Every structure is written in structure tokens, then in C-alpha cells.
Computed example of a mutant assay.
Amino acid sequence: MRDPHELYEVSDDLPELGKPVLIQALTGFVDAGNATRLAREHLAATLEGQLVATFDVDQLIDYRSRRPPMIFIEDRWHSYEDPRLELRAFTDAGGVPFLLLTGPEPDGQWERFVAAVIALIDRLGVRLTVGLNSIPMAVPHTRPAGVTAHATRRELIVGHEPWLQRVQVPGSAGHLLEFRLGQQGRDALGFAAHVPHYVAQAEYPAAAELLLSSVSTSTGLLLPSDALRAAAEEVRSDIDQQVAGTAEAATLVQALEEQYDAFTRGRTGSNLLASQSGPLPTADELGAELERFLAEQNRGENPGG
């Protein structure tokens, strides 16, 4: 492996961090309901951050598979949105510093990238790493959003019951980071918010709020979530209206409610993990209707956006 330290540069003026928590919220893996994106954007918008380290994306990103957008105006190139993979320091509502790792998930050199992040964890005295994720599930929007918690030690996620037994999923750089930290006897955990599979392609702020509240509960950080809670109530109202206007949709949601209630009572039987396409044709149809509805609502609120 090439030297992982050559993958990043650390800022000259580092803040006083103590023993911070590092929240990992990379882009590129499954992000149902855009929950991880909403969570990290909310933190960046509501808290003042300071750059700590930047990664050399030219070594990590395949531009042909994820081409950065460029703006062309009349007869010239106006701008280029260069991808940034960086580590920033923030301070929570109680004045406690924490770190946030954001940017595109590396397309290659995962082991080297993970080694680089672990080197930064050592250098910055990180005590705990927390990963954010969201997955589509066969659950109704009318029930409280659930979360799957995982960790390198069971003691880190006391109070969280497992939703899944054994499942094989595609790997991700963030999950590999947690796995390697566990192999080294370090503390790391992660949360995957459950998003109703029929709105997995739309924005679902309830899942983003759940991710941040889960981090707060497990780490003691006081992370803001009021704006996400308000947005979640609006989205819930929009979905309720759409479902109420379609008998087929109402029937499907009722069936999901019955399945969800039975599952939570016994925590056995059906696996609620769902693919993006959904296991039921009616769920696909409902999902398409709801996604179109929410997209129209967004266009109405952001004309020309």
C-alpha cells in the first residue's frame, strides 16, 4: 500500500478538539430518502465549521463515472463544481467540538483511504467514530421511523434492538472504516435510518432527524434538529394527503402498518428490508405517485430550481 499520509493535508491552524467524536457522512452509498445528505447539510448550515483536513480527490475519484457538473454560458465555461472530500470541525449546542467527514465516497483505494482516516483519528485524538446511512424498508410512513444500529462493541448501542438477522449487502468505504476500526479494537458505530421504500427516492427529513437524534443519544452531542422536525411534519402531511386521495395507496399503507405492528410485537418473521424497487407492484406504483407528488411540491416551492 502506498503511504496513506500522502492522501490528505491537515490545516495549519487546528482548533482545540479534546477527544472528539467523528461523524462520517460520505456520499455515494445507499441514501434512501436522502437522509444522510439532509443530515450533513443541516449540520453545515446551522453550525459554524472549520476546515481540518482535505483529501486528494484526484487519487480517489473516478471522474468518468461521477462527472462533476460544469456551467456553460453562451460562449464560455462559467464554473466547475470541484468535488471536495474533507474533514471539518464543528461545535455542538453545548460547546463540545466534533468532526464531520463529508464528500464523495472514494471509487478506489479504499484500504489506503481507510488507513488515512485512521491516521487522522490517531492524530486528532478521536474517541469514537459514527457513520450515517439510510436504507429503504417495507415500513409505513405513519409509524415512527426506525433505525438499525451496529457497532464494534455491543456496549456502544445498548437499547437498540436488531431489525435484521443476517444479510449480505454491497460494501462501502464507510462500513469498511467501521470494520477495520473494530479489528483494531477501536470504538466505532453506525446508524441506518429506515425509510419507507415508496418514498426512498424523495427527501424524507424524518429519517435525517432520526440519524442526528441517534448520534446525540449515543454520544452526548447536542445536535440541532428543529428544522428537520418541522420539515418532516410537512412531508408527512403531504404524503397523508396523497394517500388519502387514492384507495389503492391507502390499502397498501394499511397493509404495511399491520406488517410493521406484527413485526415490532414479535421481532420475528418477515424481513422488512426492501430494495429500491420494492417487493410489491402496488408499492412501486404508490412510490411513483408519491415521488411525482413530492417533486411537484418542491418545484412549487422553488420555482426555476
Rank of each mutant, 00 (worst) to 15 (best):
R180F: 00
Q201W: 14
D187T: 02
R153F: 09
Q184R: 13
Y204T: 02
A188L: 05
H175M: 13
V199W: 02
W163N: 10
E155A: 13
V158L: 15
E178V: 12
P162R: 15
G182M: 02
P196A: 08
V199T: 06
R186M: 07
A151P: 04
R180I: 11
Q183S: 12
Q183N: 11
R166D: 12
E178K: 06
Q165E: 15
P162A: 12
G190V: 02
G190D: 00
A151K: 08
V195G: 01
L176D: 00
L177V: 06
A193L: 07
L156R: 00
H197I: 00
Y204Q: 01
V199N: 04
Q165D: 15
E161K: 06
Y198S: 07
V199S: 06
G171H: 08
A192T: 08
P162H: 14
V195Q: 08
G159V: 13
F179A: 13
G185V: 01
G171Y: 07
A202V: 09
R153K: 12
F191R: 05
R153M: 04
E203M: 00
A193S: 10
A151H: 07
H160L: 12
Q183L: 14
A200G: 04
T152F: 02
E155F: 02
W163G: 13
Q168T: 13
R154I: 07
G174C: 04
R180S: 02
G185S: 10
R154M: 12
A173R: 11
L164C: 05
P162I: 01
F191H: 07
A151S: 05
E155N: 07
T152M: 04
R154W: 09
H150A: 14
S172C: 10
E155T: 11
L176A: 12
R180T: 08
R186C: 01
G182S: 04
W163D: 10
I157R: 10
E161D: 11
P170T: 15
R154P: 07
T152A: 02
R154C: 07
E161R: 09
S172Y: 07
V195S: 01
A173C: 11
L189V: 04
P196K: 00
W163H: 13
Y198F: 03
F191A: 06
V195H: 03
I157V: 12
A192K: 08
H150K: 12
P162K: 15
A149F: 06
R154T: 13
R153Y: 10
H160T: 01
D187I: 03
Q168W: 11
Y198M: 10
H197C: 12
G182V: 02
V167K: 15
Q168K: 14
P196C: 07
T152P: 00
A202I: 00
Y198W: 04
P162M: 08
G190C: 01
G182A: 04
E155Y: 06
A149E: 14
A193R: 00
H194A: 13
V169I: 15
E203G: 05
P196T: 03
A202L: 09
H194P: 00
Y204I: 03
R180D: 04
Q184E: 15
L189N: 05
A192C: 14
V158A: 14
